[in-house]
Amino acid sequence: MPRTIVITGGTSGLGLGLARHHAGLGDQVVAVGGSEEGGRRLRAEVPSAQFVRADLSSLHQSRELVKRLIDEHPAIDALVLAAFRFNPVRVETAEGFEHTFALYVINRRLMAEGLRGPLENTPAPVIVNLCGAGQGGRIRWDDLQLTAGYRALTATMQGARASELLGAAYASERIKYVLYNPVFVATRLHEPFKQPLRGLVRAGSALFAQPVRKAVPPIAALIAQPPAEPLTAWKKGKPLDLTVDRDEARRFEETVRTLAG
């Protein structure tokens, strides 16, 4: 039976690969991206997919997106959170948030919480959060927006830890929450950098990164048959032992909820 799969960051990289895979199975794919260029790419490669344009680093647009998805898709089988951008320098959104935190943390919480209803309307709902699970990041409680001494890797690792905490706070017997670390995948990672670093990253990706076509199947398998446990973590198709302090998870979820307003 065809399913409805919503993929943020679904117009490029691993998100696009998953869109292509599920469309090929006959599923209804809704791919969210931030540009018309991405929409054209999606339509060229996955003509049956629905493209929805939204700036996922914007809280306002994220909320409007959730409303639209609820109206158009009252039942959603899987939500794949794949939108991410590596920012070499600190970028602040129009709403005053550090961009990585807005996109990688707040948006993912808004999407998961906002679409809880449509997910619960399906027999085996699952959220797959593509993140750096198991990488040992930490929350900068005294400076969540990294206003002092921004480092791109620090922002990324904080986001990875945030995914673990938000997953622990969200997961339930009804909706399974999967944290998936695909490791190094060839997904246009070079684009945010300036030359000559851009060329070096692109060359390294060509040599060492896993092709998207090989990274998709283990993720798709978890969507097809979600794990029995409410929260699981995976790294390149293999399960991870993940320890999350439930008190810290609740504290962080409450903090993000307060920030999001």
Rank of each mutant, 00 (worst) to 15 (best):
G167T: 01
F184Q: 10
Y177S: 04
P182C: 09
N181G: 10
T187H: 03
A152H: 06
G159A: 12
G149N: 14
L165W: 10
R151G: 15
Y180E: 02
Y150N: 10
S172C: 12
M157P: 06
A152L: 01
G167Q: 05
E173W: 13
V183F: 07
M157Q: 10
Y177A: 04
Y150Q: 13
A186V: 03
R161G: 00
L166T: 13
F184I: 12
A160E: 04
Y150I: 15
I175M: 06
V185E: 08
G167M: 05
L165N: 05
R161P: 03
S172K: 08
E164V: 03
V183L: 11
T156F: 09
G159L: 05
R151H: 14
K176S: 12
V183K: 07
S163M: 00
T156P: 03
E164T: 04
N181W: 11
L166H: 15
A148C: 05
E164R: 01
A168C: 07
N181V: 13
L153D: 14
S163Y: 01
A171S: 11
S172M: 11
A148D: 15
R174Y: 08
A155Q: 13
A160H: 06
A162G: 10
G159K: 02
Y180L: 04
N181L: 11
V185A: 03
Y170E: 06
Q158E: 01
M157W: 09
F184V: 15
A169Q: 02
L153G: 03
E164K: 01
S163E: 00
A160F: 11
I175P: 03
A148W: 12
A171R: 07
L153E: 11
Y177I: 03
T156M: 09
R151F: 10
R161W: 02
M157I: 04
L166M: 15
L153V: 11
R174M: 12
Y170F: 15
L166P: 13
L153A: 13
A155T: 14
A186S: 10
Q158G: 01
T156C: 06
K176Y: 09
T187E: 06
E164M: 03
